[in-house]
Design a protein around this nucleic acid. Structure first.
Lengths: 121, 121
DNA sequence: GCAATAACTAACAAAATTGTTAGTAGGTAA
DNA sequence: TTACCTACTAACAATTTTGTTAGTTATTGC
């Protein structure tokens, strides 16, 4: 639980007010988040598929990251009707879908300036 | 200091290998980082100017964030010649400059889907 | 009945990030 | 000489994030 009187929390709120950039970055920050969004966009939209894709993630951690993405309205859960045992699909919202091309440009940027290349001004 | 045997560190390395997206996101994650990059791109390229802009940041924290951005080759420090007392300018590298439009699209995305709007699929 | 699958949750522990306190250097202005 | 400015750093404490352990519910196949 966040301590709402902490400097940490207050500074975060301050930045959220300065510019939407800061809240946007905070939504995609988090160990597995951007990879989860990207994996879902590629069709890995089931809990167990994501567990497979993200080799080292635990069920607890995956569930938590998914819930946070849901809180930020990046995705929604949908029960698959008549599935046995009951299955759940994770669907990107429009907000989540619009994020994907931005993640792709971040990925391209990362590739362009991968480690070991010279620094240029 | 990172513990190189921790699950946390190992998982981070795993994600860095999966896709450059993950290292790219980790570079801009951090309480003040994206705002610092944006402020420098707007001309606030001196230590004391950034201290003013980012009202609540402390000198220690600003220095640390700047050093991390320097480590990731987003910016470089340059002493201003003949300045008294000695001044330092922070200059975005090409890597840093290329990041700015991506941060702007993240900002636009944040504005489009600001809190309180309905979730659409 | 027993194990297995899908999709979780609570409580706790480990680790990482962020913030605070106190101090540095070299020079200026009063 | 005393205080102030610019631009830091080290050591530590507070807070947050991430990972672990041990469970849950409901159903199917053997």
């Amino acid at each position: 639980m966040r301590k709402e009187q902490s400097s940490n929390f207050i500074n975060e709120q301050f930045l959220f007010q300065v510019c939407e950039l800061n809240s946007a970055v905070s939504v995609i920050s988090g160990r597995w988040k951007s990879q989860i969004v990207y994996s879902i966009s590629q069709g890995n939209n089931r809990f167990h598929l994501l567990l497979q894709e993200l080799t080292n993630i635990s069920e607890t951690v995956l569930a938590r990251q998914l819930k946070e993405l849901e809180t930020h309205a990046i995705l929604v859960k949908q029960e698959i009707p008549d599935s046995v045992p009951v299955g759940v699909e994770y669907i990107l919202t429009n907000k989540g879908k619009d994020l994907v091309p931005i993640l792709e440009s971040l990925c391209d940027w990362g590739k362009t300036y991968a480690e070991g290349k010279e620094i240029s001004i």
